[in-house]
């Protein structure tokens, strides 16, 4: 079994074999094959040596001691969660999921900002109207009022004129 020659892991893009070897997670058979291969492959030998040293050195990055009140704080938060209304509990996992998707974050921000703007405009009642100019297809309200005034004035003059001519006619009849 050990006579099967291993192809160079670095030449064949299987460097994970060397990582496994240094992590001591390689099975006995492959370990023996790799060690046999390394006898004649300086490149693999060098990499395995450097990786083994890094692997051991990384043990220095020890974890910190966990706070004694970690569980108490967590259970307090769970208790608070239990008091939250049902709809909020339903919404929270959805929110968590969306927050975990970075691609959604700008979209959500924009959507939230737009929703706030719409609410503000609706509440204030000053939703901007479309402005079409200068085609004249939409007539300003002030123009309509002015036109009505002019028509009224003209009507008054017409009646005045009619009244005058009527009086003259009466004079003539008399």
């Amino acid at each position: 079994m050990l006579n099967i020659k291993m192809t160079c892991p670095l030449q064949t893009g299987n460097a994970d074999v060397l990582l496994d070897y240094c992590a001591r997670s390689l099975d006995a058979e492959r370990k023996a094959m790799l060690e046999k291969h390394m006898e004649s492959c300086a490149e693999c030998r060098e990499m395995a040596g450097a990786q083994s040293q890094i692997w051991s050195a990384m043990d220095a990055f020890e974890a910190e001691t966990i706070s004694a009140d970690f569980d108490r704080k967590l259970y307090n938060r769970i208790e608070e969660l239990e008091r939250v209304p049902a709809w909020e509990r339903f919404w929270a996992p959805v929110r968590d999921y969306l927050q975990g998707q970075p691609a959604w974050r700008p979209v959500l921000s924009i959507a939230a900002a737009s929703a706030v703007l719409v609410v503000v405009f609706v509440v204030r009642g000053d939703v901007p109207q479309p402005v079409i100019e200068p085609s004249g297809a939409i007539i300003d309200v002030r123009d309509v009022e002015q036109a009505e005034h002019v028509l009224e004035d003209l009507e008054m003059l017409r009646q005045f004129d009619a009244g005058s001519s009527g009086a003259n006619a009466q004079k003539e009849v008399l």
């Binding site: 966990i66 706070s67 970690f70 996992p93 968590d96």
Partner: peptide, 23 residues
């Protein structure tokens, strides 16, 4: 902790992890 390299933050985030599991 090894990701964020800050123990109080790590514990806060870990609490959030277990809270999400529970939720």
């Amino acid at each position: 902790y090894r990701m964020v390299q800050n123990q109080p933050v790590a514990e806060e985030l870990a609490q959030e992890v277990f809270l999400r599991v529970y939720r």
